Simulated assay, not measured.
Amino acid sequence: MRTQVAIIGSGPAGLLLGQLLTNAGIDNIILERSSKAHVLSRIRAGVLEEGTAAMLDEAGVGARMHREGLPHDGFDLTFDNRRHRVDLHGLTGGKRVMVYGQTEVTHDLMDGREALGAVSVYEAADVRPHGFDTDHPFLTYEKDGVTHRVDCDFIAGCDGYHGIARRSVPQAAIETFERVYPFGWLGIIADVPPVGHELIYANHPRGFALCSMRSTTRSRYYVQITAEERVEDWPDARFWDEVRRRLPDETAQSMATGPSVEKSVAPIRSFVAEPMRFGRLFLAGDAAHIVPPTGAKGLNLAASDVRYLFDGFREFYIEKSAAGLDAYSQKALARVWKAERFSWWMTNTMHRFPDQGAFGQKIQHAELDYLFQSRAALTMLAENYVGLPF
């Protein structure tokens, strides 16, 4: 097979890139090692920046998001048994975020791709990129016991942190930066109404908690746990009791509970790989970077990578210029590191650390207290939360 852009991975990054390329008349194929059902079963983030929502509209798949998504003009931070609202809309000149699950984004992009007749190969085993340091890169993969080859102009590695794209790069050509946090998030989904109409981030002596939602009838809750704890350690009753302890009294009393639909533990880490281009291989999304979920930046960073990468491909094929592709890594990483900084700040401000001590807790309290006495500090938080410009 011959194509212009071969994409590894059918998560949101790969699917969004493929949709934009197909709409622009640029031929592409997506290879995915998992089944379509498995990809759609992944439970991930659910807060979209305005820029991400606009890209879904540009890709022609935003209609259901606007029908079913929940626009949010702010969110709450709680500490000292008090609840404070961050007015995103007022602090950023009218910007907001959209609460719409990543699973739904993936579903919409898959449906859009099928409607356009673009090619996706699921359960493609042993995908391997070759020759990306030459002018003639290609991919190989196995399907139903047969080895296939895809010749292409470029390869887009959108296959996540554990994917083959980044691992195919020679070690000497890539530098990685990582911080692993000494705790995780235990998250559950339950078919109960959310405790508030916007997200609630809680700082508490027992640890961090987050009250989120997927709809007006489905809630998503998280609590900070130690790195050693497992899902089996947390029956539903213990989880709900712990969430209540970490919320202001009035909020805890109004919270509805019910059996969990899904329950999982997510480790918390920061990770960046530099550069994000190696010859004719480009990395995008989790293949190149991971952020703590505290700042709601993971999916949005993947979308911003796609913004720069798609613009580069469009310039290359339509305007006959390689300038966008040559600038891709530098542009993407500048935004990545700003998001890493914000996610690091949110994580350090809202969580309890094992070695924090009494002094560290006082500093954390002072940080939160100052935040709500300074419009400038709140504006910094709001600008980053709604998403910096591309």
Rank of each mutant, 00 (worst) to 15 (best):
P275Q: 06
N28S: 14
D144C: 00
A63V: 12
G387L: 03
L48S: 06
G46V: 09
F239L: 09
G117Y: 08
N23K: 15
G298E: 05
E250A: 15
L56H: 05
G74A: 08
R167T: 11
G25R: 07
L20E: 01
D80H: 13
A165Y: 06
E104V: 08
E175Q: 15
E123R: 13
M213G: 05
V306H: 03
P193I: 09
G94F: 10
T226E: 15
A332W: 01
D87H: 04
S215H: 05
L116A: 14
E178A: 15
L199Y: 11
R44D: 10
G207C: 08
L301I: 12
A156C: 08
V39C: 04
S120F: 00
A13G: 05
D27E: 15
K320D: 14
G14V: 06
A323D: 14
G14A: 04
L77G: 00
F154D: 04
A125R: 15
M65I: 07
E383F: 01
L378H: 06
F239R: 01
I30T: 03
T379A: 13
E250Y: 09
V306W: 03
R269E: 11
F390S: 15
T379D: 07
Y328E: 02
E142F: 00
T147P: 00
H162C: 10
E232P: 00
R206F: 07
Y161W: 12
D133L: 11
Y222P: 07
V127A: 03
R280V: 05
F154P: 01
G163H: 03
D27F: 05
A339T: 02
D241Y: 00
T92K: 06
F154L: 08
D305R: 02
P71D: 10
D87M: 07
D111N: 12
V192S: 07
F353P: 02
V61A: 07
G46P: 05
P193K: 09
Y308Q: 10
V272T: 12
Q330H: 10
F177D: 10
F282N: 03
L20P: 04
F154Q: 08
Y100S: 02
G163E: 03
V386D: 00
P193G: 10
R44T: 13
D159F: 06
H72Q: 15
P389G: 07
T3R: 09
W345V: 14
V105R: 01
Y317S: 07
E104G: 12
D87G: 06
D286T: 06
D57H: 12
C152G: 04
F313Y: 10
K263S: 14
A323T: 12
L56C: 01
P267R: 10
F177C: 08
V119R: 14
I200N: 04
R2T: 11
R230S: 13
V119A: 11
F359N: 10
Q253N: 14
V243C: 08
W345I: 14
S304K: 09
A53G: 12
Q102G: 11
S215M: 06
V180W: 02
S254E: 11
N348L: 13
R280W: 03
T52R: 04
F310P: 02
M65S: 03
D159T: 07
L88K: 02
L70R: 12
P137C: 06
E114L: 13
H130S: 07
G46S: 11
G60T: 03
L388W: 08
D241H: 11
P293Y: 01
V195R: 04
M55C: 06
V121A: 01
D108Q: 11
E198S: 13
A377N: 07
A334I: 04
A227Y: 00
